[in-house]
Simulated scan of single mutants.
Amino acid sequence: MMFGRLMRMNEGAGHLCPRRAIEPALAAIETRNIAEIVARVVGTLDYPVDNLDELMFTLPVCVMAAVTGVPFSQLKEVAKRTRDFVGCLSPLSDEVQLGAAHRGAIRLSEIFTTLLGSGELKSRFLSDILSRCEAAAWGDHDALIANLIGLLSQTCEATAGLIGNTLIALQREPHLIEGVQPTPMIVADLVAEVARYDSPVQNTRRFVAKRCTVGGRVLEEGDTVLVLLASANRDPDVNPDPDSFLLRRTQRRTFSFGAARHECPGRALALTIACEAILVWLHSHPVPFARLLRWSYLPSHNGRIPTFYPDEETR
């Protein structure tokens, strides 16, 4: 039931209200304030600069939860429950993961129900959403909670992949920042090129609602279209010399977040969170790659998300 309420999964009339309330609120978030939130969140975590799993998965979700107004005392629990929840989004999930996802969804629903029912001042982001819901006379409480949880789940794996793939890019090409002060502008360019060159979301699917013609091919109602986002990023017609990693690439076009009406409204926020996470890591490692990073990729049909091993382990 929760999955079916997510605005990103459907463009029907029932999904327009959460989209119209949440998308403008996301676009209105001041990304320059994210650095301050990241700094506060880092202080609540255990080992975010040494534990890459925590840097990749826990930090971004905690930041998104904090933006939503979740108390800092609950951020780590929300991150854990969100990671449990995303287990139900993959067809590769087993029964154990599905059970944990179900429990995670229930607990996240409880947390957001309490947050929405609280008489205390809401975050600016959540207040903006509630104001838009009220203006549209839309009061589907369960759908709103489902979509708030959806924001956390989208932040979880995709941003983790973006952070992890950036670390891999630096491991493979350390000259990108050698002898250079890692300023926010340089790291922003680095993360943006990683999003294009090594997309954390490789593909997505679209389902044909009615018979149509796309690219000269007739598609029938019910057909599934596999959209290769990572391949589009390497199209030489939109990104010249597409197989080269260029930090200062001009007029970069990236399709990892979709495009046009399907573009992810959290694109700028995701890039900013990843950038701030990488800055935290770089500032804590004077010699960033004095040790060799080892990694493999999590099993997924559409994601490219690395998992890193301690030095003493082998792949």
Rank of each mutant, 00 (worst) to 15 (best):
3 F>T: 09
7 M>A: 08
8 R>E: 06
9 M>A: 08
10 N>R: 11
12 G>K: 03
13 A>D: 04
19 R>C: 03
20 R>W: 08
20 R>I: 05
23 E>N: 06
25 A>W: 04
29 I>P: 01
32 R>V: 03
33 N>T: 07
37 I>M: 09
39 A>C: 12
42 V>Y: 13
44 T>L: 15
46 D>P: 01
46 D>T: 07
47 Y>A: 14
49 V>H: 03
59 L>Y: 10
59 L>M: 08
61 V>G: 05
62 C>Q: 14
65 A>V: 03
67 V>E: 08
69 G>V: 12
76 K>E: 08
85 F>G: 00
86 V>G: 09
87 G>Y: 11
91 P>F: 09
95 E>T: 13
95 E>V: 07
96 V>C: 14
97 Q>M: 12
100 A>M: 14
102 H>A: 09
104 G>F: 14
110 E>D: 14
123 S>I: 12
124 R>H: 05
124 R>Q: 13
125 F>H: 02
125 F>Y: 07
127 S>V: 04
128 D>L: 07
130 L>D: 06
133 C>G: 04
133 C>L: 08
134 E>R: 15
138 W>E: 11
146 A>E: 00
147 N>D: 02
149 I>M: 12
151 L>D: 03
154 Q>G: 14
157 E>M: 11
160 A>S: 14
162 L>F: 04
169 A>K: 00
169 A>P: 06
170 L>S: 03
177 I>Q: 01
177 I>M: 10
180 V>R: 13
181 Q>C: 07
183 T>N: 00
189 D>M: 09
192 A>W: 02
193 E>V: 05
198 D>G: 02
204 T>C: 09
206 R>H: 02
207 F>Y: 15
207 F>L: 06
209 A>N: 10
211 R>D: 15
212 C>T: 14
217 R>H: 12
221 E>Q: 08
224 T>G: 13
236 P>Y: 05
237 D>T: 01
238 V>W: 14
239 N>C: 12
249 R>A: 11
254 T>L: 12
256 S>R: 01
262 H>S: 11
266 G>W: 08
268 A>D: 14
272 T>P: 02
273 I>L: 03
274 A>S: 06
278 I>F: 00
280 V>P: 01
284 S>N: 06
284 S>H: 15
287 V>K: 10
289 F>T: 05
301 H>P: 10
302 N>W: 10
307 T>E: 15
312 E>Q: 04
